[in-house]
Measured scan of single mutants.
Amino acid sequence: TFTSYQLEELEKVFQKTHYPDVYAREQLAMRTDLTEARVQVWFQNRRA
């Protein structure tokens, strides 16, 4: 599960791009204290 802060950050990036590159995902992962893999999976699920 994600915190409301994490979801907010993820959604913010999703609004800009549905396909963030690895750099964007790593920045987001650091900001949200998630792994890059978790961020990647979240985007895959969000796009589905």
Rank of each mutant, 00 (worst) to 15 (best):
A24W: 07
E8K: 09
A29S: 07
Y23A: 11
E11V: 11
M30K: 14
V13S: 06
A48G: 11
F43R: 01
Y23I: 11
K12N: 06
T3S: 10
E9V: 06
R46S: 03
Y23D: 09
R31Y: 05
T32N: 03
A29H: 02
F2G: 02
Q6A: 05
Q6H: 02
Q15R: 11
V22C: 11
Y23V: 14
A48E: 11
N45H: 11
T35D: 10
V41D: 15
Q40E: 15
E8R: 10
K12I: 07
Y23Q: 13
E26H: 12
A24N: 06
R47N: 06
V13Q: 08
F43V: 01
A48Y: 08
R47D: 02
T32C: 12
S4L: 11
R31H: 05
L28K: 00
S4K: 14
R31P: 00
Q40Y: 13
T32V: 12
D21A: 05
S4P: 14
Y23K: 13
S4D: 11
R47I: 08
R25P: 02
L7I: 13
T35I: 04
T32S: 04
Q6Y: 02
L34D: 01
E36H: 07
Q27H: 08
T17A: 05
L7F: 04
V13M: 14
V13I: 09
A37F: 10
Y23T: 10
K12R: 11
R47E: 03
A37Q: 12
E11N: 06
Q27P: 14
A24F: 11
F43W: 01
L34V: 04
E36C: 06
N45Y: 11
M30D: 07
L10Q: 00
E9W: 06
L10I: 01
Y23R: 13
Q15T: 07
Y23M: 11
T1D: 11
Y19R: 04
E9R: 03
E36M: 14
E11C: 03
H18P: 15
N45C: 11
L7H: 07
E8I: 10
R25V: 15
K16N: 09
A24E: 15
F2A: 02
Q44G: 05
F2R: 02
Y19W: 14
F43C: 03
T3N: 08
L34N: 02
Y5A: 07
V22I: 13
P20S: 01
Q6E: 03
V39K: 01
D33P: 10
S4F: 09
R25L: 15
V39S: 09
F14N: 12
W42D: 01
N45M: 14
D33V: 05
W42C: 02
D33M: 12
L34E: 01
A29E: 03
M30W: 08
K12A: 10
R38L: 15
E8P: 13
Q6G: 01
R46C: 03
A48F: 08
T32A: 08
D33K: 11
F43G: 00
E26D: 06
T32R: 00
Q44I: 11
L28S: 01
R38F: 11
Y5E: 08
T17E: 09
D21Q: 04
E36G: 05
R31E: 06
W42Y: 03
E9H: 06
V22R: 15
T17L: 05
R31Q: 08
P20E: 01
H18K: 11
V22G: 08
M30R: 14
E11Y: 05
W42P: 00
F43M: 04
D33H: 13
D33N: 15
A48K: 12
T35R: 03
Y23L: 13
K16W: 12
Q27W: 10
N45G: 07
E36K: 05
M30Y: 13
E9M: 09
E26M: 14
A29F: 04
D33Y: 07
A24C: 14
T35N: 07
E36R: 05
E8A: 13
Q15V: 07
K12H: 11
E8Y: 10
F2P: 03
A29V: 07
P20I: 05
T17P: 00
Q6S: 02
V13Y: 09
P20Q: 02
A24Y: 06
K16E: 15
